[in-house]
């Protein structure tokens, strides 16, 4: 369903992706783990065509994104929902207008109907009575959930989560994990999540892939990753400062 083939990307002579290969089957939940600055977000942005690779291809439902014009790309994007790390809510619009943004743009529904759907999606993520608030009036966890409601409003086939639990307290983080699982069960979506929160990764993943030095160095189920013998994977999942992964500025 989603396939990244030999993906290369650099910014100002700094190679971030150096030949990434990743396959995500329909209905699967893949979690990409990796340290800060390892290029996880860059990888995710390639899947939805926000960034174009220097080399390599991104295939979504047998369409090569680099071959599509703007209209074609927008058609593909309608299959996606994306939850941003900072929620990225439009702060000039009310909560329901945020959630109903895609419906307003791409359907002919009247505002009243869009608002009803928005309220229903907000209810799905556990938010009631916030539809007429402005995003700035909400807490971080609530904003994340509004972001999720916006991502699912157009009934997407694929959901992309950019660090969904970062910046949240442990209870809220777990609630978001539960929501991700619920979305998958109720909406039957394929999902790609990037995170460095291992607890979250174990909970929501069918497959975990580790991105290190611009390539996917290991792929496997939660269990396989937990039992991996690869020293890089071990260091990361155990969260140790000592090991083959070099932490800049830390003397050991």
């Amino acid at each position: 369903m989603i396939e990244l083939k030999d993906l290369y990307k650099s910014f100002n002579h700094n190679s971030v992706l150096r030949g990434v290969n990743l396959k995500v089957e329909k209905g699967e939940s893949v979690v990409v783990i990796g340290g800060s600055g390892s290029g996880k977000s860059v990888l995710l942005k390639h899947i939805i065509g926000l960034l174009k690779p220097d080399k390599g291809t991104v295939i979504v439902d047998s369409s090569d994104l680099s071959q599509l014009d703007e209209e074609g790309l927008n058609e593909i994007r309608k299959k996606f929902g994306m939850l941003f790390q900072s929620s990225a809510l439009f702060d000039s619009m009310m909560v329901w207008e945020n959630v109903g943004f895609g419906l307003k743009r791409h359907t002919h529904m009247p505002d009243q109907e869009i608002k009803e759907i928005a309220v229903e999606k907000l209810k799905m993520v556990g938010l009631v009575g916030v539809e007429d608030e402005m995003p700035s009036q909400l807490s971080g966890g609530m904003r994340k959930r509004v972001g999720l409601a916006r991502a699912i409003a157009m009934k997407p086939e694929i959901l992309l989560y950019d660090e969904p639990t970062t910046g949240l307290d442990p209870i809220m983080a777990d609630a978001i994990n539960d929501l991700i699982i619920k979305m998958r069960e109720e909406l039957d979506v394929t999902s790609v999540t990037i995170t460095h929160d291992m607890k979250s990764a174990y909970k929501i993943a069918d497959t975990i892939a580790m991105l290190y030095n611009g390539v996917i160095i290991s792929t496997g189920s939660s269990e396989e990753i937990q039992n991996s013998a690869d020293p890089v994977v071990r260091q990361f999942i155990e969260g140790r400062a000592e090991g083959p992964i070099i932490v800049e500025g830390i003397n050991r």
Partner: peptide
């Protein structure tokens, strides 16, 4: 900087 422009693109909006 708050990724709202990226969000517009993901919602198929130029």
């Amino acid at each position: 900087v708050t990724e709202q422009i990226d969000a517009l693109e993901t919602l198929a909006t130029n």
